[in-house]
């Protein structure tokens, strides 16, 4: 079964690489931005997977780091266009700050949250993300509730042009590959072993002499930093920054992506993000189609209610296909995939 799994993953990765070429060939440039969003969410899901899948830390607040990364671009744009600070659009600086700031915030949040366990951990990470959410709503200067429309995107000089969808797509794809490689090295290192070990039996690891708190904290910080990169890309993709992306429901979406794809596997979150956004895009049309087949009335309207199918589908996945897509590919169906 392993060959099917790796074959499928290779197919997905190669297909993703070919998206802009195909989109131009069939004259549907819309697909480029749609798939860019998938790559961005894939990066965010990978970052969550490091703590959730490998580390067993259920962070219910990762949308906050996504938002922080996006606001780096938004605040840079604001000062460049309103205060004439041209340097504030510098893309390299945006990228660096979108790694450093969410990373540091995640370290701070983790330092307090990791003292708690179980449901308290879920709730305290949620509380921190709500705090950041309201913090940005309170920042009237940077748009507050309404968000900021970005007339200028991150400026990478002559290297890349963020206004060009294809450039942005390949930047996202390249960053995703880089992050996947880094995560692969990380989880298979000694550090990764400790993280995974602390998930299955923390007391034993502490008895052996590992300061698990510090290891978990560093993993949490790395996760926040990676999520910030996704936020940076998201701002450039949607050309808009707002607090809506930091709402706790989006933290839930990220968890869904990780579980849908397969927790604690390298490519699972990528498959999950692609699958989630595909469902979001095509489930309405599938419902409409199915409605027309059985000859129902008002089929155009029926598609709008796709979440009424998606919600129970999610419950089904939790109940019957714990391994997610990656688990199905490995032929492991059931709880412990």
């Amino acid at each position: 079964m392993i060959s099917i799994r790796y074959g499928f993953i290779a197919f997905v990765m190669i297909a993703l690489a070919a998206v802009p070429t195909v989109a131009v060939a069939i004259d549907e440039p819309f697909y480029v931005s749609m798939f860019t969003r998938m790559l961005v969410m894939a990066i965010a899901a990978c970052s969550l997977n490091l703590v959730l899948g490998y580390g067993g830390m259920v962070s219910f607040g990762h949308a906050a780091y996504l938002g922080l990364g996006a606001y780096v671009v938004g605040i840079g744009f604001y000062h460049a266009s309103n205060d004439g600070m041209e340097w504030a659009l510098n893309g390299w600086m945006h990228l660096a700050l979108a790694i450093i700031i969410p990373g540091l915030v995640a370290l701070l949040v983790g330092a307090i949250s990791l003292r708690t366990r179980g449901v308290y951990f879920i709730m305290i990470t949620l509380a921190f993300s709500q705090m950041l959410y309201y913090f940005f709503i309170g920042l009237e200067r940077y748009g507050g509730d309404d968000g900021l429309s970005l007339w200028f995107l991150s400026d990478f000089g002559g290297v890349m042009d963020m206004n060009d969808d294809v450039h942005l797509y390949y930047l996202s794809y390249g960053l995703l590959l880089l992050i996947l490689f880094m995560l692969y090295r990380l989880v298979n290192s000694r550090f990764g072993m400790v993280i995974k070990g602390a998930k299955s039996n923390e007391r034993r690891l502490m008895a052996v002499g590992f300061p698990t708190y510090r290891y978990r904290l560093v993993a949490f910080g790395i996760s926040g930093a990676i999520c910030g990169v996704a936020g940076f890309l998201m701002a450039n993709q949607s050309e808009f920054v707002s607090t809506a992306e930091m709402h706790w429901v989006h933290s839930g979406d990220l968890i869904v992506m990780v579980v849908l794809g397969g927790m604690g596997t390298l490519f699972g979150p990528v498959l999950g993000a692609v699958g989630f956004l595909m469902l979001e895009q095509y489930l309405p049309e599938m419902i409409r189609g199915g409605c027309e087949v059985i000859g129902g009335n008002d089929c155009g309207v029926a598609g709008e209610y796709w979440k009424i199918v998606f919600g129970p589908l999610l419950i089904m996945i939790v109940l019957f296909a714990r391994g997610g897509i990656d688990g199905l590919l490995q032929g492991k169906v059931g709880r412990n995939g």
């Binding site: 259920v58 879920i122 968890i255 919600g311 589908l313 419950i315 109940l319």
Partner: peptide
Amino acid sequence: HLDQVLATFGLILFFNELVRL
């Protein structure tokens, strides 16, 4: 708890759409 969070998250989506319907 992760399973419960996910499944009841699905319930939220379901209820919101049901109410809208």
